[in-house]
Every structure is written in C-alpha cells, then in structure tokens.
Design a protein around this nucleic acid. Structure first.
Length: 706
RNA sequence: GGUGAUGUAGCUCAACUGGUUAGAGCGCCACACUCAUAAUGUGGAGGUUGAGGGUUCGAGUCCCUCCAUCACUACCA
C-alpha cells in the first residue's frame, strides 16, 4: 500500500545566499524523499522562499529596489543553487545540488495569503486571538517600529560600542534592547523612542493549546525523543503556564500580508506566514498539476491517511513543534505527522567562520567546479536521526569521498567494464554460480538499507553499502579476471566473473541512488537499463543484455579544489553581508565571539561608576528563592532599588544601615519581581559566598570608588 | 547559576536492555597484485573508552564528583 507523503524543508530566508549549513537540511530531506519515491510511495516535496519581514524591506530599500524585485532576484539565486533554476526544470536535468522539489514557491503568493487569512480567521473565531497594547522602540525618523536587532548601542555589560539589541558580540552577554546604553536606530541612526501599539497575539497560553501540545509532543510519535524532552522543558509542569502568547502582528511599514479587518494597519508577522508557506506552496503545486480541491484537502485537512513531514533545524523547533501544530489544530487543519530536527553544521570542528573561509556558499562550491554529489555523499555518511551537530571535516571529506566513492564503488565498474566491452562486445553472461553467496548478501541487504534510510540513519546505510562494496571488490580480487584474460580457454569464466561484478555494481548503485541521483542516472545509461527502483535489488540483469562502453563516472577530489573553496570564501575577498536579524529557516547565524582581551585600560575601568551606598532597607521578596530587595541611599545620586542574589547568606535585618559598594551606572534590568537599578558587589567562588564588600565607616554614601 | 547533550584509536564514527581479549572505515606500516584515471587484496601497529571515585561476579554502557565543548534557560544586575 503506497504511502502518500507531503514533505517539506524549512523555507530559506530571502535575504541571503544558500550556504553549506542550509544544505544539510535540503540534502537530508532530498535523500529521504528520493528513497521514498524509489519505494513506490507517492511523495510531494515542497518548499518556498521565505520572503516577508523587516529585513527584506530594509534591504530592498538600501538597494533602491522594491521588495518584490529583491525577492524575485533571490528566488533565482536560491533555485539555481538548489536544483539549477527554472531552466533546469524545463530541461528535466536537475543542476545545483540536485534537490528534487516537486514545487518551489514563495511565501509572497496569493495561495499563501489565502491560507494565512483563513488560519487567522479560524483562530479568531475560536477565541485564540487577543489584542494587547505593546510598548516598543520606535524610530521617529523612519516612522517605524524597530525589531531588536535593529537597535544598536553600547553593551550594558562591557560597554562595547555598536552592539545589537539582543546580545553583545564582544562579551557574549544577552539582554533586551531596553538595556542598551545610548541606543540608536540601526536604520536611521536616530535615538529611538518608546511607543505603544496594539498587537495581535495567538493565545498559546490558552489551556486548549497547552493540553493539546502536551499530548502532541510527548510519546515520541511526532518528534524525536530528545526534541520531546526539550519541548517538555518549554511546556513546563502542568499549571506552570510557561507558554507565552505569540505576537503575530506588525505595524506598517511592513513587507507582508495585511491582517484582515485591520484596514492596512496591521500585518502578519513573517514567522506566521512562513510555515503556512508550506501549504501555500502545496496549493500552488496542486493548481499547477491540476489536482482537485478534494485531493488537496486529503493532505491538509484532518482525517485522511496522508502524512505531513517537516524537516527542520533544531533552532526552529519551537516554531514547528509548538506554534505550528497549535495553530493548525485550532484552525481546522491537520497537524504534522512528523517533525524531524537535525543539528547544525560545523566545519573542521568549529562554527562556520567567514574569517577562516569556512562559511562556504553553495554558489562558490558549484562555481569552483566541485561535484555536488561529493557533498551529498559526505553528508549522508555523517547524518543520523538525532539533533546532534554534524561536522564537515574538509580533510576527511576528501579522504572519504575519494576512497569510498572512487576507490571502492566506482572502481568495481571500472575494473570489469573493459573486459566486457573489449572481449564480449558489452554483452553480459549468466552470473557466476560461485558468487551466489555475495549475490545473496547484496540482495538481502535491501531491507536493512531501506530501514536505515527510512529511519534517517543515512550514516548506517552508507556504512552497510560500503561493506557490500568491499565484498564485491573481494570477489573480483579472488577471481582475478586479469589472469583469466591471459588464457582464451578461460573466456567463459572471465565473462561470468565480469558480468557478476557488474551485477553487484548495479545493486550498489541502486542503494546509493537516493544520495547520488545523477551518478545513478549515468549508470543507468551505461547499463542500458530503466531507472532503478528499490524492488530491482531482487532482480539481476539477464544474460544477453548489452551494456554501453564505460565512461569514467566520478573523479577524485583534489585537495587544491578544497583549498580554493576555502580561499574563495574568506571574508576579505567578499563584502560582508549584513547580519540577518530574523533567523527563520536559517541556521548558523551564530556569530563568533572574539576572545575578550586579557587587560582593560584605565578608561575602560572608569566606565564603571562604583559608589558607596547605604542599605537603608532590605526585604525578602515573596516567591524568590535567592533574591533580596534592597533600598539604597547613594548620596548625590539619590536612592535606588536593587535586587541582589544574596538571600542565601544574609538576613535582611542585619543588612540595614551597613555600607557597601554599588555599580551605579549599570543599566536597569527588568527582573521577574521588579526592576533592579544597579548591582551590589559581592565576592564568591566555589568554596563559598556571596560575601558583601564592606566600606569603612567614615565613607559617605555617594562617594565614588576608584 | 540551572537543565540537557556530547566527550571512544592520528581522523570520522560504531558498540541492543551492563557480559567474553572495545569494533569499522580512512590514514599509517609491511606484503601481495596490476584488470581498474594508484584503484584492489592480505596482514599489522595503534585506545588505562575526558579525569577521579562508587555499585556489581562483571561497566564505554548504571550512580556521584570534576574537566572540556555545545545548546537551551534563569530570581547571577
């Protein structure tokens, strides 16, 4: 009974180039999809560019073009990287990284708009949309609200200049934009002002969502067990109400879809229409190939036996395993059958780095003439079903591909084909009866390899296939066709041995076909056979079948090519793209953290305003395990309220009246129990603490410590 | 600070619910072979399984502590 599957990869954001980190996902998905097709299942694999949001809008502005024009250009780039672009589709010969989408679309489409409006309306009818006022930074020059990443300023912790509103690239601390000192808009440079606006929220905290998600995420049915654990953490214990409502609206100017009934005053947040874009792309596909509404509904509405499978990176698990299923469930759509999360890509054991040249774009890889199937093979060999990161070790990449693919696999054909074409006119003989054991091993492995592919244990599949390739080489070695060739009397034996080895090669090709589709096609041409499907593993080529002359199928990777690749991606050789404020389907956005320098100078130290303070009042904080609330007299600077994590050692009563040191110019920090307006200094290490600093009695509150 | 994950030969990875001398591929060394765009075969060296404790007849596998890396998170302000 063929399964019917709708499979997706996360939508890449339309403001940047595809890189090797992205490709892990598209290659993983494509291998799985191609495997399912070989099984005879009905698979529809859709994806799209994720096109909306502030970053796209601003980038288009800075380039002096419309967002639509930007999005169209990037669409061209992405599709060219993935599968060779439109022209490849027309010719039927995929290029790029050979990703076999059935449809690649855009979130900026009428199909997607219709789904977004419908999902929103259904959620609203279900009482799951709430409107609340939210105060945010606003750029008075540009007349627009600023996402966190567009507010820059000095890091509240280390005072580094020009840091983003969410985290400091110098000291690595995270904070909210309101903590920044001297904030300014990264768009206009103006000082942002606080401004309130109505926002639409999806009420994820609603008990209906929570109870649904609790059962949906647990049990290992829809997500990997590790992901389930993570989700459990996010969900918290029943009654904890850890899920926060989700702000799904944005104010104009915004490149996106208008929220119905808001008169152009509210737009859908890009993260709402991104996952909905899976459906938009699918509808576009259905229209294109003439599917009926009923056929489409079989995939999108509850109650049918179709499967909806999402491949994503672990960084967007929250969206795909919480927001997305909860939205679908309450908007009358089916929920995903599976959400498969993978890990990040590291290169040579480290985060991809522009300065090291390991932030490698798909385009540079292809343009330098590297074979996409090398990378597909290497990723396959490294991929498993978990969310663990995978490492692209460039030396290992070269060694692995060269020895496995060229040395072992392709070599089997190469070493026998010459005899067949020169001595026997390319006509195959009966297979060698003496090889039945190896033959059986090959055929019987179909199930094992299939299970590994199905379970996304591609590394295990590859290992098994290479064991089989070893067995095939051992067979050839034992039969020594080159010796048989010396005596014409041995011709029948030589014929059988080479035919048998070619038969082995055919089965190995079949097993590798999901990973190496182009090579498999070349082999199918070479062998004069119809496209291989999984069940062909149980058959052999008949005697008398004629194959073509062998043309070499794959070259080895030259280390120089890899060196050139790294070189071409060195940051100095290319303009630095603006950091992406929204991550979406992007992975690898983590910036490297430069090591903090060992010394600071006197000016750095002077930035810290240390003052003597008198604790005029100290109180327990209801519900807090570690915090005390302190009222400080800081002399000329007035009074401050500070929360300090010193409850474990100090009784509020004994603190009253004593002098200590406070960091007076630390940005106010909003904490769970109130805002802390400074920081008390205390010493601690593993052996004990915290111990408050003491100040001699003669000191006066407000005195500067230096 | 908390939680979770990871840490196994030079490299990349295995080892089901704890069970015989911890495996494989690559690389390396030796030998063999020469059909194959130096590919292949056979054999070998190489690990106190991050460190230290503990449970057990027996631990890479379970428990505790520590170290390192990564991720998430916070009442470290």
């Amino acid at each position: 009974m063929p399964r019917r599957l709708l499979v997706t990869s996360a939508l890449p954001y339309a403001n940047g180039a595809i890189h090797l980190g992205h490709l892990v996902e598209y290659i993983q998905t494509d291998i799985w999809v191609r495997f399912q097709r070989m099984q005879g299942h009905e698979v529809t694999y859709v994806c799209a560019d994720d096109t909306h949001g502030t970053p796209i809008m601003l980038r288009a502005q800075s380039e002096g073009i419309t967002p639509e024009a930007l999005v169209e250009r990037v669409y061209g780039e992405h599709t060219r990287d993935f599968f060779g672009g439109e022209e490849a589709l027309r010719s039927g010969k995929l290029g790029g990284f050979l990703v076999s989408f059935d449809n690649y679309h855009s979130t900026n489409s009428p199909q997607n708009r219709a789904f977004c409006e419908d999902v929103y309306t259904q959620l609203k009818n279900a009482g799951l949309i709430q409107i609340r006022s939210v105060e945010q930074f606003f750029d008075p020059v540009k007349s627009m609200f600023l996402p966190d990443r567009y507010i820059k300023g000095e890091c509240p912790k280390c005072a580094a200049k020009d840091q983003y509103g969410d985290s400091c690239e110098v000291c690595g601390s995270t904070y909210s934009p309101t903590d920044l000192k001297n904030p300014y808009s990264a768009v206009s440079g103006a000082a942002p002002v606080r401004k309130a606006s109505e926002h639409h929220f999806f009420r994820l905290s609603d008990p209906r969502c929570e109870s649904f998600l609790r059962q949906w995420t647990q049990g290992g049915e829809h997500v990997q067990s590790e992901a389930g654990n993570k989700l459990k953490e996010w969900l918290g214990e029943p009654g904890e109400n850890k899920l926060a409502d989700w702000d799904i609206s944005r104010d104009p100017p915004y490149f996106g879809f208008e929220i119905p009934g808001t008169d152009g005053q509210k737009f859908f947040y890009v993260w709402l229409d991104a996952p909905v874009g899976y459906f938009g792309s699918f509808r576009h596909y259905c229209e294109r190939v003439g599917k009926t509404q009923a056929q489409m509904d079989a995939y999108l509405r509850p109650g049918s036996d179709t499967e909806l499978v999402h491949f994503i990176g672990k960084d967007i698990l929250y969206f795909h395993a919480l927001f997305w299923p909860a939205m679908l469930e309450h908007a009358g759509y089916r929920t995903p059958s599976k959400v498969f999360a993978h890990g990040f890509l590291t290169v040579n054991g480290e985060k991809m780095s522009k300065s090291r040249g390991t932030f490698i774009t798909a385009r540079s890889y292809l343009d330098l003439g590297l074979n996409p199937e090398w990378l597909r093979y290497y990723y396959a060999a490294k991929l498993g079903a978990t969310m663990e990161d995978i490492d692209l070790n460039l030396d290992d990449f070269v060694a692995r591909v060269n020895s496995d693919l060229v040395g072992k696999f392709v070599n089997i054909a190469s070493r026998c084909a010459g005899f067949l074409s020169k001595r026997f006119g390319g006509v195959l003989a009966e297979t060698d009866a003496g090889a039945s054991e190896v033959m059986a091993l090959l055929a019987q492995s179909a199930q094992t390899v299939a299970t590994h592919y199905e379970d996304r244990e591609f590394g295990k599949a590859i290992r098994r296939i290479m064991e089989l390739a070893d067995a095939a080489n051992q067979y050839v070695d034992a039969q020594k066709p080159w010796e048989l060739a010396k005596d014409p009397a041995n011709a029948p034996r030589l014929h059988a041995v080479c035919s048998t080895a070619i038969g082995f090669f055919r089965v190995l090709t079949l097993y590798l076909k999901p990973v190496l589709p182009r090579l498999a096609e070349q082999v199918e041409d070479f062998l004069n056979i119809a496209p291989l499907s999984w069940s062909d593993a149980q058959r052999t080529l008949p005697a008398g079948h004629r194959i073509d002359d062998y043309k070499h199928l794959m070259t080895r990777i030259d280390t120089k090519q890899v060196a050139a690749l790294v070189d071409a991606n060195k940051e100095s050789l290319q303009p630095t793209p603006a950091p992406s404020p929204a991550r979406h389907a992007e992975q690898q956005q983590h910036a490297e953290k430069p090591a903090a320098s060992a010394h600071i100078n006197i000016d750095d130290f002077a930035k810290v305003d240390l003052r003597v303070a008198r604790i005029v009042n100290a109180d327990h904080v209801a519900g807090a395990d570690k915090l005390l609330k302190l009222d400080l007299d800081v002399g000329v600077l007035g009074t401050r309220t500070v929360f300090a994590g010193i409850k474990s050692r100090y009784d509020p009563e004994q603190l009253k009246g004593r002098l200590t040191i406070v960091v007076a110019n630390l940005a106010p920090r909003k904490m769970k129990f109130g805002t802390s307006e400074g920081m008390i200094l205390a010493a601690s290490d593993d052996s004990g603490g915290p111990f408050l600093l003491a100040v001699d009695d003669a000191a006066k509150p407000g005195m500067k410590a230096k």
